[in-house]
Design a protein around this nucleic acid. Structure first.
Lengths: 221, 221
DNA sequence: AAAATAATTTAGGTAAGACTAAATTTAATG
DNA sequence: CATTAAATTTAGTCTTACCTAAATTATTTT
């Protein structure tokens, strides 16, 4: 296929993330995610849409989606990123709030050989340290059946699968509460006024607001 | 200090290598090492010499040398490269003929934190898998007291310290002969006509030409 | 030392990818 | 539905780092 540049890879990755909901990604959202001005994003998107095999589908004012080639390239980068996060945590003792930044740069620099070696060394993991699914070697994204914690109600138990955040401060906070992937929890109270959930983790009870409960995804037991 | 770009780092690294002999590096040699046209090298060198703290010393037609800042930046990259080579060989099973290319890209992408972590994980090694000295954390290049194998004569014994080559074919060949860093050898014959040396490695005897014996550096016992 | 050859530099150009400012299109509001 | 506001695109610049072709300086040969 194509040799994609670092910037192209960043664009494709962000577009993948923004379009996971089914909606095309807007220029503005993309600009915000990439820390690039909207005008520049428009220009770059036009270039990506004009590549020999087009990487994105684009119509003025209608937003962007990935083509099959574009999605493949995006999943390649995402696989690199998530394998790297897992590898950095497991072999170099990075904490889950530190790995993101390092992986963000390394993901563009590693070879396919390197990818295969760390995947094998880790035993072909399916999730990264945040619980995000790792695309398979043939670049398919496994199905995810998890539920947002915010949808649970008293007396429901669940296992935490993923935590959607790259913010080190939030991640450290959640870790201090014991809210990390793999942990079992139980909902004991729910307030319909502010949507707070009271969640039992081990012996501790924590009251969590929507800004947290929508970022934690669980498998209901 | 400065944030140096990938290309700047490549230039500084090559200039460091080419000036190790004491002579300034020529535009042409640099161009050959970097796979870049001489005209482009001139332009880039002029830019490096014009940086706020100059990275190179440059006078038209006289070649380039590194300034103190430039040398520091070069040693930083070289430390990254050599630590990465050691790391890739030790933890991911790369062979010494495969690591160079991978390290060549990763060296520009890793953080200082990453550097410290792999250095610690490896026990602060002083040489990479080729036997090249690794610059210290405070960016000093340790003194090297090794001798080229080509200078040895019959009945001298030595330990191989470094093999100066990035060529995978040559490296695999040397490995098949047992000529790798750490191994002990003994010179049994010398031909003053073609400068061939006969070298005993373990039980095997090998006749080696100048093109090999000048690339292997040893510590005489 | 002059001529030929090799190395180096200048000049001018290109491609990526970002930016600002201005124009335009879509969406939201009265 | 007209108007304002927000989002998006166009147009024109800039920087980095490369290239080719032509001019210049060094070096080597005769």
């Amino acid at each position: 296929m194509m040799k994609t540049s670092t910037s192209t890879q960043d664009y494709l990755k962000r577009i993948y993330e923004l379009t996971e909901c089914g909606e095309p990604a807007s220029t503005n959202d993309l600009a915000r995610e990439l820390n690039i001005k909207p005008a520049s994003v428009t220009g770059m998107i036009q270039k990506l849409a004009a590549e020999k095999p087009a990487l994105v589908e684009y119509q003025k004012h209608q937003g962007v989606t990935l083509t099959t080639s574009g999605k493949r390239a995006a999943l390649e980068v995402i696989r690199h990123h998530r394998l790297l996060e897992a590898w950095l945590v497991q072999t170099l003792g990075y904490s889950w709030d530190e790995v993101h930044e390092e992986a963000e740069r390394l993901e563009h620099a590693i070879s396919e050989d390197f990818e295969r070696r760390i995947a094998a060394a880790l035993g072909h993991p399916t999730r990264d340290p945040h619980g995000e699914l790792i695309p398979t070697e043939d670049l398919k994204m496994p199905a995810d059946d998890s539920t947002p914690l915010s949808a649970l109600r008293p007396n429901q138990s669940a296992t935490i699968q993923r935590v959607i955040s790259q913010d080190p401060d939030l991640l450290r906070h959640l870790e201090s509460l014991g809210l990390i992937p793999g942990i079992q929890i139980e909902v004991t109270e729910y307030s319909s006024f502010d949507n707070n959930l009271t969640v039992k983790v081990g012996k501790k009870q924590n009251v969590l607001g929507l800004n947290i409960t929508t970022k934690i995804f669980v498998e209901i037991l």
